[in-house]
Each structure stands twice: as structure tokens, then as C-alpha cells.
Amino acid sequence: MSEFLTSLGHNIILLSAFTAWLSAQLLKVLTSFLEHREFNAERLVGSGGMPSSHTALVVSLAFATGLQDGFASSTFAIAVILASIVMYDAAGVRNAAGKQAKVINRLVHQMRVEHTLPDIKLKELLGHTPLEVLAGAALGILVAYAFDIFR
């Protein structure tokens, strides 16, 4: 078991991806604090926000794979396809679902005034703007490059 954990600790690609994700989550707390002037612990694990941690993770994974295995390798190609799907989902599908949740929450609030409805609130911060995805991608590349330089 210790040999397995040691090998994980030497896996630059895995460490790069995890570090990019963790950095993005910490940056979400900071950007949320700067925007709302209050600490929101949910930002440490929640989806949505600046920058996209999912994007930072998969772009760091792809870029670190390219740096280690070569940008012409099949593993890099697989990682790029995975990153593309995640980024499309973050800025497209999940962003649209978050906008729909906002509208539904407003409708439920308005209808509760006139009718008896259960008190429900859908999570609105699901996806990302293109800028949040771009920032996550830049962070992912930066982290992977830093791991490559210092290994």
C-alpha cells in the first residue's frame, strides 16, 4: 500500500491536475469574498464561480500529459477530448441549467405569494461563463507548466 501511495506522490500529471483543481477552488473563495464581502465556505466545494475548477483540472491533466508524453501522443489526444467535453458542459449545458434554475426560483417565489407552494430553491450556480472557463484553462496550463519546470 505504501508503494502505491508513493507512486501517486511521484505522478506529476496527477499532482498537476489535483493542484490546479485545489487552486481554482481556493481562488473561488477569494473571488466570492471580493465580490460579496463575506466568506462563503460552500465555494470550497461548490460548482460554478471564478475560475472553473473542473476546467482547471482537465486542462492541467491534458497539458501535463502533453508535456510528459508528447503533444502527438494518443494519451494527450484522449485528455484533450475529455477537456473539451468538460469545458463545453461547464459553459453550455450547466450554465443553461443554472439560468433555468434562476427563472424557476423567481416563478416559485411569485406563485408562493398567491398560492400555497412548498418552499423549494434550486441551486442556481451550476455552470460557468466563458470567461470563468477561460480562466480555469489558463490556471490549468500554468500549474502544469510549473510542475514541468520544477520536476
Rank of each mutant, 00 (worst) to 15 (best):
A101N: 01
L82G: 03
G92A: 14
V80K: 04
Y88C: 12
H109P: 02
I81Q: 07
S74C: 00
G98Y: 04
G70T: 08
S84C: 13
A64W: 01
V59T: 14
S84Y: 11
A101H: 02
R94L: 10
G92S: 13
G70Y: 06
F71V: 05
S52I: 03
V108I: 12
A79C: 14
V103I: 15
V103H: 11
N95I: 03
T65I: 04
S84V: 12
R94W: 07
S60L: 00
N105R: 06
A56M: 09
Q110I: 14
A96R: 15
G92E: 10
F71W: 06
R106A: 09
A101T: 05
S52G: 02
T55Q: 13
G92T: 08
A97D: 14
H109K: 13
V58D: 04
V86F: 03
S60C: 02
A90S: 07
A79N: 13
M87H: 10
V93W: 14
S74F: 02
G70H: 10
I81N: 01
I81Y: 00
I78M: 13
N95M: 09
S74Q: 07
K99D: 14
L67Y: 01
V59Q: 08
A79S: 10
V80Q: 06
V103N: 09
K99V: 05
V58W: 12
L61C: 10
Y88Q: 08
A72G: 11
A72F: 06
S84H: 09
S53T: 06
R94C: 03
A101K: 01
K102R: 11
F76K: 01
A96N: 15
K102P: 04
V113P: 07
L67D: 04
V108Q: 12
N95Q: 14
G92P: 06
M87Q: 11
A91C: 15
A97T: 15
M87C: 12
F63N: 02
N105P: 08
V113M: 09
G70K: 06
D69R: 02
H109T: 15
N105H: 09
A56D: 10
Q100K: 15
R112M: 07
R112Q: 15
Q110K: 11
S52E: 05
